[in-house]
């Protein structure tokens, strides 16, 4: 059975979940089904809307956007029963929800598979929020549930405040992968499955900012200050991420692979590709890693040559690609 990946987008009120969902909806090459708490906030461009019927908006790019309303469970099942099943389901968690609880739903159905729990955080407010007497524990739990944390609004931080926010994250979620972002703008490939073309990651690395980073001059996202940040933020992307490919000639022992993945340095944010393991040296498995979560799928339908080829995306700053490649090659 082909499983539909599910990504849960969490984060406290005001962290930028809606902005991120807007990015994903506008710049995806997949048929996404996005489940949102409130249509009113998502603000989809009128020209993108193909039709609107009750709780569902159909977009001209094939995506659908559904209002969760009173029952996430019913909205999710509704999406699963669509005539044309979406390629990826994205669920917006409410601002006070623990996204890991919502991610539970993806484990209940054999036709679903959890891709990742992505949690946004409003970096300037983070140190105050985790100390808040009412919601400190909620924010803390959300961060601990994350496979990938998007530290949003870093353009509004001074150097000192930035250090404080980073310290909070290191203390509360020491294992999580963290991306810094402005206007919740992160390359879609980092969050969702990059889609049909396995090589897309390598040939069009996110550092080129293909579409995912910025809306261009027609952008009417109220949270998007092109005048002030546009150029800055393109440049930031260009310098932020690095990619590298990992390959191996011989099958990799599965146990050693698992240890390698669990022990990856924190600056490796994303890994995707095919890997031949000792369990079936003639047919590669599909490896997906988003943040700290990875899955190996032997049942994929891809028609591929029996070889190992993985693409990694990492935070550029201190990334040592050669070291990673050596470590992977040593697994054989």
């Amino acid at each position: 059975m082909v499983r539909t990946p599910v990504t849960v987008i969490g984060g406290f009120l005001g962290a930028g979940k809606t902005t991120l969902l807007n990015h994903l909806l506008r710049h995806t090459d997949q048929r996404l089904a996005v489940l949102v708490n409130d249509f009113g906030e998502i603000n989809i461009d009128a020209e993108l809307i193909a039709s609107h019927d009750g709780n569902t908006v159909n977009l001209s790019n094939g995506c659908i956007c559904c209002s969760i309303g009173d029952s996430l469970v019913e909205a999710l099942i509704g999406v699963m029963q669509q005539a044309e099943r979406p390629e990826h389901i994205v669920i917006e968690a409410s601002g006070v929800a623990d996204p890991a609880r919502i991610a539970e739903l993806a484990t209940l159905d054999a036709s679903l598979e959890l891709n990742a729990v992505v949690v946004l955080t409003d970096a300037p407010r983070l140190p105050d929020l985790v100390r808040d007497k009412y919601v400190g524990d909620v924010v803390e739990q959300q961060l601990q549930s994350a496979d990938l944390i998007i530290m949003n609004k870093i353009d509004r931080l001074s150097a000192i405040d930035r250090r404080d926010a980073t310290e909070v994250l290191l203390r509360l979620a020491p294992d999580a992968r963290v991306i810094e972002a402005v206007n919740a703008s992160v390359p879609g490939e980092l969050v969702l499955d990059a889609g049909r073309d396995l090589d897309a990651l390598a040939t069009a690395p996110p550092s080129s900012g293909t579409g995912s980073c910025c809306h261009g001059p027609d952008c009417n996202d109220p949270d998007h200050h092109h005048d002030h940040h546009g150029h800055d933020h393109d440049r930031r992307h260009a310098n932020l991420f690095a990619t590298c490919t990992l390959s191996a000639d011989k099958p990799v022992p599965r146990a050693a692979l698992a240890r390698f993945l669990d022990g990856l340095p924190k600056d490796v944010l994303r890994l995707k590709g095919l890997v031949l393991t000792d369990e079936n040296p003639s047919r590669p498995m599909l490896l997906q890693m988003v943040g700290r979560r990875w899955t190996l799928d032997a049942d994929h339908r891809l028609d591929v040559a029996p070889k190992t080829r993985l693409v990694a995306i990492a935070v550029a700053a201190e990334f040592d690609a050669a070291n990673l490649q050596r470590g992977f090659a040593a697994l054989q």
Binding site: I77, R101, E104, T107, L108
Partner: peptide, 29 residues
């Protein structure tokens, strides 16, 4: 099926008890 909201007996067998949204999901399906 792996979920902490699907209750099990001491030997790990399903009891047929389901908690929270897991129960609602099951009923809806």
């Amino acid at each position: 099926t792996n979920s902490e909201f699907i209750l099990r007996d001491s030997e790990g067998r399903l009891t047929g008890e389901f908690a929270g949204q897991v129960g609602r999901f099951m009923l809806a399906k």
